[in-house]
Nucleic acid binder design. Structure first.
Length: 352
DNA sequence: CTCTCACA
DNA sequence: TGTGAGAGG
């Protein structure tokens, strides 16, 4: 999912965040779909079963959302979650393709589970993950209760998040996908987590994961291209709107081609065999001018303790002890960083 | 993914 | 004070 620009991003456009205090006081627009999906994928038992409440409703996404948001706020980071709206027309092909892949995976998961093949069951249940309307709504209700703002994008969440960051209302977009850069986000934060350990898929091996910031300006300068050309390269490699890209063309040759010929139009003239599920120029146009809104309010409010307990403990069977514990941390973070203005002297002391 | 608790 | 295993819902 998303564009894979990893190999294209020059080393010096990428910076590790060694201390999350660097982000203190900064607004970060999080791609909600990306975050919830990650929680659903990661918060599972070895056989692939997610956390569920007594009514059988999945709660993994709420657990992840709750604890991670508190962690960010404890570092003085101001989170705003951006939710996806209607996928754009040019995504139709990919949306359908994903739906079929999920259905197939769901069947395989059930089969593997019934036959006791635990690892396979897990693998396929992750591939079968679907973010339901119910999950999205429960996540929004939880954020409301926590006093954390969210923005409902008219279309792609990454596009809306990038728009918010471009206007200066957020310092960066946080997502695992690189798409926000194509949409013009000045900064992209990947791996925005506190616990820096992640299990390698398949094996019981853990690797250190550190958050990193990628700066769009530095990417473009280092590569000597414009954002429009970066988008052209992405289209040759493959985006959400043409996932296969152009067969045989990877990051390296895509870059060389655009660098040498200047634009996608010119490159396509020498690649007459290339086919696309959508007009590639329309895809570029969408990255440059996506459907976004300016009507949103980014305000952080005092957490509503009772409502949070109502949602997590009474509706979804979270342990009262754990939730109360986290609530103390949330309230403290709110007092410290979110209530009223923070003076520069306060900031100076918090650095220590 | 994140928390908690046991153990060094 | 830090690390690892196991549970969380």
């Amino acid at each position: 999912m998303g564009v894979n620009l990893r190999e294209l991003i020059p080393e010096d456009a990428r910076r590790e965040i060694t201390d999350l205090r660097e982000l203190m006081g900064k607004v970060v627009a999080l791609d909600a779909y990306n975050a919830l999906y990650q929680f659903l994928a990661a918060i599972r038992q070895p056989d692939g079963t997610p956390l569920i409440d007594r009514k059988g409703r999945v709660t993994s996404h709420l657990s992840g959302l709750f604890y991670r948001t508190i962690n960010l706020m404890e570092h003085g980071i101001k989170p705003v979650y951006v939710f996806d709206g209607m996928p754009p027309e040019i995504k139709r092909y990919e949306v359908e393709r994903r739906r079929m892949r999920r259905e197939k995976a769901a069947e395989l998961a059930e089969k593997a589970y019934a036959e006791g093949r635990v690892e396979e069951a897990r693998k396929y249940s992750v591939q079968a993950i679907r973010l339901t309307q119910e999950m999205v709504e429960s996540a929004k209700r939880l954020l409301d209760a926590m006093g954390v703002p969210y923005v409902q994008a008219p279309s792609e969440g990454e596009a809306q998040a990038a728009h918010i960051a471009r206007k200066g209302d957020a310092w960066a977009v946080a997502s695992q996908d690189y798409d926000a850069l194509l949409f013009g986000a000045p900064r992209l934060i990947r791996n925005l987590t506190i616990s820096g350990r992640r299990k390698l898929p398949g094996k019981d091996v853990y690797v250190e994961i550190k958050p990193e910031v990628i700066e769009l300006d530095k990417v473009l300068k280092a590569l000597g291209i414009t954002r429009s050309q970066l988008i052209d390269i992405a289209i040759l490699i493959g985006t959400d709107y043409n996932p296969d890209g152009v067969p045989g063309i990877g990051p390296k040759s895509a870059y060389q081609l655009i660098k040498a010929h200047g634009s996608l139009e010119k490159v396509l003239k020498i690649l007459p065999q290339a086919t696309f599920p959508e007009d590639p120029l329309k895809i570029r146009e969408y990255f440059l001018n996506p459907n976004v809104i300016d009507e949103y309010k980014l305000e952080w409010h005092e957490p509503d303790e009772k409502r949070i307990i109502e949602i997590l403990v009474h509706e979804h069977d979270f342990s009262l002890d754990r939730v109360e514990n986290a609530l103390q941390r949330l309230k403290k973070a709110y007092r410290e960083y979110f209530r009223g203005k923070i003076t520069s002297l306060d900031m100076w002391f918090k650095r220590k």
